[in-house]
Design a protein around this nucleic acid. Sequence first.
DNA 1: GTTAGCACTCAAAGTCAAAGAGTGCTAACA
DNA 2: TGTTAGCACTCTTTGACTTTGAGTGCTAAC
Lengths: 338, 338
Amino acid sequence: MDERKEKILQAIISDYITSAEPVGSRALVRKHDLGVSAATVRNEMADLEMLGFLEHIHTSSGRIPSSKGYRFYVDGLKPAPVAKSEQQKIDKWYKARVKRIDQVFSETAKLISEVTHNVTIMLAPEVGKAAFRCMHFLPLDERRAIAVLMTDAGFVENKIVDMPGGASFTDFQELAAVVNSRLLGKTLSDIKTSAMKEIEDAISDSSLFDAASEIIESALHSSKRERLYLCGQSHIMEQPEFHDVARIKDILLMLEEEELIRDILRAHLTDGLTVTIGEENKSERMKDCSLVTASYHMGGELLGTVAVLGPRRMDYDKTMALLSYMNTNLTNVIKRFW
Amino acid sequence: MDERKEKILQAIISDYITSAEPVGSRALVRKHDLGVSAATVRNEMADLEMLGFLEHIHTSSGRIPSSKGYRFYVDGLKPAPVAKSEQQKIDKWYKARVKRIDQVFSETAKLISEVTHNVTIMLAPEVGKAAFRCMHFLPLDERRAIAVLMTDAGFVENKIVDMPGGASFTDFQELAAVVNSRLLGKTLSDIKTSAMKEIEDAISDSSLFDAASEIIESALHSSKRERLYLCGQSHIMEQPEFHDVARIKDILLMLEEEELIRDILRAHLTDGLTVTIGEENKSERMKDCSLVTASYHMGGELLGTVAVLGPRRMDYDKTMALLSYMNTNLTNVIKRFW
DNA sequence: GTTAGCACTCAAAGTCAAAGAGTGCTAACA
DNA sequence: TGTTAGCACTCTTTGACTTTGAGTGCTAAC
C-alpha cells in the first residue's frame, strides 16, 4: 500500500461519495490530477481490489469501495472543522426553536438530520445515570397523592400514586423525609439495586415500606427520560442505494423497533465518536448502512448518544465534524436552561 | 342510479379495495353472482362512468372507483361490528403494554396502525380543555423552585422556575394559596384569557404578581399534552398505489410537518367519525389519500382525535368500525388509570 | 515502471412482436 | 325494450433481441 495507491483510493471514495456511481479509471484521471494515465490507474485499481479495498459489481463496471476501503478512508480522515456558515445555521436554529429544555433533544435531532441529510437518532439521558435529589408528595384527593421526583440533572418526574389502605398523608410526609435523607446524591440505578435496603431498615412499618418501595420503583421506572428521538426518515429516500421500496421498508421497520435502536445506541454510550461501517454493524439489516455516533456530556457527566444513520456511502468527514461540534455545543445549549 | 347499478358499484369497489387492480366486467361477473352477463355489466359500467362514480385509465383497462364513487360507497356503509378476535387482540394489547397513562396514546396509535395496516395519527388532549385543579411550589435550591400544576384529567405538568429577586419561598406558598382558591375548576384556556385579572387583584405585590403570571403562563404553555403520536409509516410502502419512491417521500415529508397534521386533526376534533376521500382533503398533497378520523371523549369531555391515513383504496368499513370501537374502548382504558 | 491500444464484457436503453385482458359496438333474441 | 353473444379494436405487459457506451484486462511498445 504505497502513497499512490492511497491517493487513488481516496480519490475513488470521495468521488463515489458524491456521485454514487461506480468509478472508472478514465473518469478518475480526468477529474483528479494524478499524474499518471488511466491504464496505470487501472493496474492500481486491480491491486486495490486484490487487497480488498475495492469491489467490482461485474467485469466491465467501475469500482466501488468495500467496507474495508471505507474503514481505511475513515481512519485516515483528519477531523475537519464545521463551516462557519453551518455554525451560524446551528446557532440560529437553537435560538429560534429551543425555548424549553425538553425541546433541546428533539430540535437537535431535527437539526442534525437536516444538515447531514440522513436519519438522526438521539438517546436522551438515561434516568439511571442521574442522581437523586429529592422527592415530595402532594395530596390529590382522599386516597391519592402525586409523587414528584427530582434529579440533579434538573429533570422532574411525577406520578400519581394510590395511598395504601390505612396510610395517612402524614405517613407519606414522613416517608418523604426518610427517603430524602437516605437517597440524596445516589444515582437512580444504585437506588434500584442497593439503597432500598437502607430505607427498609429506617421504616419500621412494613406495609408503609412496601408502598414506598412500589412508589419509588415506579417513579424510577418511568422511561420518559430515556426517550428516543428519531427523525429525518424521509432522507432515506434521497439515497440512490435505497431507491427501492422493499429496502426502504426494511430500514423504516428497523427504525420502528425502539428496543433494537436503543440497544445499538447504548452500546456506543461510552465511546466518544465512533463510525461503524456496513458489515461492522451487528445487525444483519444494517449491512449496507453506516452509523456515526457521538456521546454527549455535561460537566463531565455522560448524558446520552446522538447517531446518524446513512448509506455506507455517507459523507463521513462532514458527519463526524458535525457530531463533534454538536457534542460541545449541546453542553452550551443545555446550560442556557440550567 | 337503480339498485343494480348500486350493486355493481359496490362489487367493483370492494373488489378493487382488496385487489388494487382495475376491475373488468368479465372478472366481476365471474366472482359475484350478479345474475346478468358481462356485456350488461359493461353497459352499466359505462353508465356509472358517465355519472362520475368510476374512472378509466385507458380504453382497454378495467374501471377503478373515483372519489365520488368511494363517497357513495362510504355513505352507504352500515357500521360493522369489530370482529371478536380483534376485540380480544385489542384487549390483550392494552393489558400487556399499557402500564401508565402516558402509554395509552402511543400504544393506541401503534395498535390501530397494526390492525389497519395504515399510518395512524393521534392528537392527545389539548391542555386548554382541561380544568385547573391545583398548583404547588417545591423548593429546589436558593433561587429556584419547581412549579407543579395539576388538572382534573389527572395530568401533571411541572416546570423549574426562577424566583424573582427578593421573593422568598414563603411568598410562593402564599401565591399558590391564592392561585388555588381562585382558579379551581376553570379551564386552562379560560385562565389564559380572563382569570389572571382576578389574581392580579388578589395579589398586592405587583412584582410578585408579574413573576406569578409568568410562571402560570409558562406552565400553561407547555405543549406536552397536545402531543402528536404518529406511527406505522412503513405501512405506506405496502400499498401498491404508493409503490414509487418519490410518492412515498412526499407522504413521509408531509407527515413530518407537525403543524400541518395538527391542523388537519384539529379540524375534525368535534366531528365524531369522519371520512375524507381524495380531493375532499384540503391539502393538495393528500389528493390520493383518504383520512378516517374519530374524536374520543371521557365523561362527556372531548379529549382528542385519532386518524388513519391510507390510500383512497382503503378498507373504510373495517377502519371506521375499528375507530368507533376504539373510541368507546379508550374511555375504559383511561378509566383504569383514574 | 508506464502507457497506448484493442478485444472483450456487461448493463441499460430501445425496438418489436406476441399475449392477454378489457372495452365498445352491433345485431340478434326474449 | 332490455339483455346478450360476438367480434373488432385498444392498450399494457412481457420477453426476446439489438445497439450503445462505459469500463476492464491484457499485451506489446516505450
